[in-house]
Simulated assay, not measured.
Amino acid sequence: MNILITGGAGFIGTRLARALLHDGYSVTLLDNFSPQIHGSNVELPTDLRDNVHLVRGDVRDAAMWASTLPGHQAIVNLAAETGTGQSMYEVAKYEQVNLAGTALLYDLLAKNAGYGVERIVVASSRAIYGEGAYHCREHGLVYPQPRTSADKKNGFFEPVCPVCGGVCFSVPTPEDAPTQPSSFYGLTKQVQEQMTILFGQVLGIPSFALRYQNVYGPGQSLKNPYTGILAIFSNLARAGADINIFEDGEESRDFVYIDDVVRATVACISSSATSSQAINVGSNERTTVMQVAQAVNGYFGNKSKVQVSGAFREGDVRHGMADLERAKSLLAYEPEVMFKEGLSHFLAWAKENEPELSGYERSLEEMKQRGLLHVG
């Protein structure tokens, strides 16, 4: 089977390519080497250069799709703009890459009877859920609406029950939860995965939308300031700069290690499933942002001052953790790398790279200027 990976020169794409090559697949990587993600590096890792076919191109280019797609039996669509905060003001760019690029793929498949493509996987995101699932003592399982700026300015950061307005508690979010994204990035991912599943059914191509949680690990971009608090905190900690935490530090995330993400993705390609559906990929762990900051700072000798700023960004969610029952049932997926172990691998790798601070400071200023970052 020949497999095309869009965004293939990125963090997930290169790790996935290695796993697929190990399993005997032929791999084509498509990437435009976006400076925001790759900086000045416009080459593949050395070990991949002679083992994959590289196409330097952009998913927004219809001619590129027409020349690249034939001959591939599976597509893993990873190409995307991924910054939650940035999506709230770079609206056209996120629409073009995440939606128009995918539309060009399906335009070609629909007009050419599927081109012999047998399986498609798209990288979706937990961002499509918005606040996700919660439990109210009075009303059971509920799905809160996005938090208001007024509440957050008053220091009240937790979502409330949409029925009674009372206190509720975050629980793992299943795939059948309502989709109510609170950022434009989340909205593009919702539509992109709906496109994938719709055309998977129409064209008879088994398709999977993998709702990745917060993916991390060695090799992720330390230069892109719009995604990944692990990269941001590790840059700050190595430089001995203050680590200012948004909200109250008790917001939490489901950090899923890159090797687990790759295993789930490979499982979709080798699966015998004939249906098309969305599947969560997470860690079964909840970790607060304060816990992350303290662990990262401690690893690098506690050189930074860790402090809660009370600031908040529009579009951020409070908590996130995935229900993994569907992944276990359909893909035999269970996370193997817990956060403590994965974090140590990531930080040991980050230690060997120069910290990058200017991009993060610039991103904060951009959000302030646009009224999307509220300083406490």
Rank of each mutant, 00 (worst) to 15 (best):
T6I: 01
G7K: 10
G7E: 02
I12C: 06
G13W: 10
T14M: 11
R15T: 09
R18T: 11
L20H: 09
L29R: 06
S34D: 15
Q36Y: 13
I37F: 11
L48I: 08
R49F: 01
R49S: 11
R49E: 11
N51K: 15
H53F: 11
L54I: 05
V55Q: 11
G57Q: 10
R60S: 04
D61F: 07
A62R: 13
M64Y: 06
A66C: 10
G71W: 12
H72C: 10
A74T: 03
V76R: 09
V76F: 02
V76W: 01
N77Q: 13
N77C: 05
L78R: 08
G83S: 15
Q86T: 08
Y89G: 02
V91S: 02
L99F: 04
A100V: 13
D107Q: 15
L108V: 07
A113K: 14
G114D: 04
E118V: 01
I120W: 00
I120N: 01
S124W: 01
S124G: 14
S125G: 09
R126V: 12
Y129K: 04
Y129G: 05
Y134F: 15
L141M: 12
V142H: 04
P144S: 08
T148C: 04
G155W: 09
C164G: 11
G166N: 13
P172M: 06
P174H: 10
E175H: 03
A177N: 10
Y185I: 09
K189P: 04
K189T: 06
K189N: 02
Q192I: 00
E193A: 11
Q194L: 06
Q194S: 13
P206M: 04
P206L: 05
F208Q: 02
L210G: 07
N214I: 06
N214Q: 13
V215N: 11
Q220L: 10
N224E: 15
L230G: 12
A231V: 04
A231T: 03
F233I: 14
R238S: 01
A241R: 13
I245Y: 01
I245K: 10
F246G: 13
F246Y: 13
D254V: 03
V256C: 07
V256K: 06
T265A: 04
V266S: 00
S271M: 03
S271N: 02
A273H: 11
T274H: 11
S275Q: 14
Q277S: 14
I279W: 01
G282F: 12
S283M: 09
N284V: 01
T288F: 02
Q291K: 13
V292Y: 12
N297D: 15
N297L: 10
G301N: 09
N302E: 08
K305R: 15
Q307F: 06
Q307Y: 00
S309H: 02
S309K: 07
D316F: 10
D316K: 09
G320Q: 13
L324P: 00
L324H: 05
L331P: 07
E336W: 01
E336P: 00
E336I: 08
V337L: 07
V337A: 05
M338T: 04
F339Y: 14
E341Q: 14
S344T: 15
L347Q: 11
L347D: 10
A348K: 14
A348C: 02
W349M: 07
K351N: 14
N353P: 00
N353W: 04
G359D: 01
L364E: 14
E366R: 03
G371M: 07
G371Y: 05
L373E: 05
